[in-house]
Amino acid sequence: MVFVAKNLSFAVQQSEILKNVSVHIQEREFVGLIGPNGSGKSTLLKNMYRMLQPQDGEVFLFNENIYKQPAKEIAKQLAVVGQETPVLFEFTVKDLVAMGRTPHKRLMEVDTREDIAIVEQSMQQAGVLHLSERSFSSLSGGEKKRVIVARALAQQAKVMVLDEPTNHLDIQHQLQLMDLIQSLPITVIVALHDLNIAATYCDKIYVLKDGEIVAYGTPFEVLTPSLLQRVFGVHAEVSVHPVTKKPHIFYISEQFL
């Protein structure tokens, strides 16, 4: 296994947010994390990439406990695209994306030709090369998201964690971003709200509710009308998309039942 969380429990002021959660991700798997608001998706990811530390449980990246490894070594292997990425100083897009090269460099080492080429390629892949000289703070929410993805690409990590990466993006850029991530020869774990996007792109899906894993499997195994009713409280029909051959969910309003 490439990325493993074992029996994670996390609480804030006596309120349990994660309850004995385990996740196992194999090399180059594209794994989705879905669940209602407040189910624990973001908290689980933050525990897995060391922004939070669980009260119980362990996380292993390439068989190494991430809580016992230097942050720089973890950053060589693991890239993160969070929901919110505050930038406290004025940076151009190009300078911000170049920060993705930091784990691979010594203190005060200048960018090499290879670094510059990787940064440019990452911006091109994420569709932000034309913004390279713009100030990050001047960008729209969707543009900022794509710049942060470009920075993660510049890390050239073998594992990428993304928390709601399609937020703030229009439909075209949602699909372009998901196509890009799926095309990378890396392991991916991504929290998603859009269940049809999860169905289209994920190899496996974990379903969280009230801080616990309640289902795991392929999109066909997980995204069933009964589970959607039990976990999300919605009525739905699930069919096979004629083009993608993946599950496609049709939601049904209460007024039509």
Score class of each variant (00 low, 15 high):
residue 216 Y to C: 06
residue 133 E to V: 03
residue 75 A to L: 14
residue 65 N to V: 01
residue 1 M to L: 05
residue 198 A to H: 13
residue 91 F to H: 14
residue 150 A to T: 14
residue 64 E to K: 15
residue 42 S to E: 11
residue 34 I to S: 06
residue 91 F to M: 05
residue 109 E to S: 13
residue 9 S to C: 14
residue 151 R to K: 15
residue 132 S to T: 04
residue 165 P to D: 09
residue 123 M to H: 09
residue 12 V to T: 03
residue 157 A to D: 04
residue 242 P to R: 14
residue 92 T to H: 04
residue 175 L to W: 00
residue 199 A to C: 12
residue 29 E to F: 06
residue 187 T to K: 00
residue 178 M to P: 01
residue 17 I to H: 05
residue 147 V to H: 09
residue 236 A to I: 07
residue 74 I to R: 10
residue 92 T to V: 05
residue 248 H to S: 12
residue 42 S to G: 08
residue 57 G to M: 08
residue 154 A to E: 11
residue 167 N to Q: 10
residue 75 A to D: 04
residue 48 M to S: 08
residue 123 M to L: 12
residue 191 A to T: 07
residue 101 R to V: 12
residue 116 I to E: 14
residue 147 V to A: 05
residue 173 H to E: 05
residue 55 Q to G: 15
residue 3 F to N: 01
residue 114 E to L: 02
residue 251 Y to A: 11
residue 118 I to K: 07
residue 220 F to N: 08
residue 232 F to S: 09
residue 21 V to W: 11
residue 176 Q to G: 00
residue 207 V to F: 13
residue 181 I to G: 10
residue 64 E to V: 06
residue 63 N to P: 02
residue 100 G to S: 13
residue 31 V to E: 04
residue 172 Q to F: 03
residue 44 L to W: 09
residue 183 S to V: 09
residue 33 L to R: 07
residue 137 S to T: 10
